[in-house]
């Protein structure tokens, strides 16, 4: 059937494909090259981390995928479509650095926000809210207001909000950057379980090497001035990852390679 063929074709296209992608910001102090000649393919079901020092364009790349920034050169497709079409088709969920929960809405109302905007019926909203709240282990906190929750729980709620409309792609921009290390470890292992259960494609921006190695199937190392990709590392760690995998030689080997990549692309003399 034609429909089947179409579905199959879609399955074959990469979720994210960037070719010679470039983005230059115009500022009062002249042009800033945020992304230069980025070539990258992300396939369905991958967990891709973007790591690099500040100013390397990792967040900019994520925002470009999300159609929050417009590339100035090259080609970028999401599921074979332009970022704008993909955004309008609600192809991805985005988790920001801050939870950005609306303080005037309860947690369940916050999770329901995208569903309201996308026009889901009341029954379906309730069902999806219940399911995603369960997925991030926040059941029982539906009626709380964001300010009544800890930072870690707020960020979990914001992940639930990104998952609620069941987009296949999840874009996460340093979601655990503001949390302390213990909470962060906990949320990392929960995120892995969630990824396993939902089979989503995840793009994850971080500046922590252990976090990147622990979570990813693919690690993209980036460096600044101009923002570019310096290394792409495929991780062969098993899918089942307890927290103490971080002490194994395999883990440390990958971490060392990431660190080398970061060091190569970054000379400290020119750092400001």
């Amino acid at each position: 059937m034609v429909f089947d063929a179409f579905e199959q074709g879609r399955f074959m296209t990469p979720v994210v494909s960037a070719q010679n992608l470039g983005l230059t910001f115009k500022t009062n102090d002249g042009d800033v090259v945020a992304l230069s000649d980025v070539n990258l393919t992300i396939n369905k079901g991958e967990f891709v981390s973007f790591i690099g020092p500040s100013g390397c364009g990792k967040t900019t790349f994520l925002r470009t995928i999300a159609d929050l920034e417009r590339p100035t050169s090259g080609k970028l497709t999401i599921n074979g479509q332009t970022p704008e079409v993909a955004r309008k088709a609600r192809a991805y969920g985005y988790v920001f650095q801050a939870p950005a929960l609306y303080p005037w809405r309860t947690i369940e109302k916050n999770v329901a926000l995208p569903l309201e905007i996308m026009g889901y019926g009341a029954g379906q909203q309730a069902e999806r809210v219940r399911r995603t709240m369960d997925l991030v282990n926040l059941s029982g906190f539906e009626k709380k207001y964001p300010w009544q929750l800890s930072g870690g729980m707020q960020q979990r709620a914001s992940i639930a909000r990104a998952l609620s409309f069941d987009a296949d792609l999840l874009l996460m921009d340093e979601p655990f950057g503001a949390l302390d290390e213990i909470v962060r470890d906990h949320l990392n292992s929960e995120l892995l379980k969630l990824w396993d259960r939902t089979q989503k494609t995840i793009c994850f921006v971080t500046h922590s090497i252990p976090e990147a190695v622990y979570l990813s199937t693919k690690i993209v190392v980036m460096s600044p001035r101009p923002g570019r990709v310096t290394d792409v590392i495929e991780s062969d760690l098993p899918k089942e990852r307890p927290l103490d995998i971080r002490e194994t030689p395999e883990f440390l080997t990958i971490a060392a390679r990431v660190r080398d990549g970061l060091r190569a692309g970054h000379s400290y003399e020119e750092a400001v």
């Binding site: 159609d67 991805y92 920001f96 950005a100």
Partner: peptide, 14 residues
């Protein structure tokens, strides 16, 4: 409203 909050609405194509 903060820019993150507005970006959020944009990602929903609101």
């Amino acid at each position: 409203s903060s820019s993150i909050e507005r970006d959020l609405m944009r990602t929903y194509a609101a």
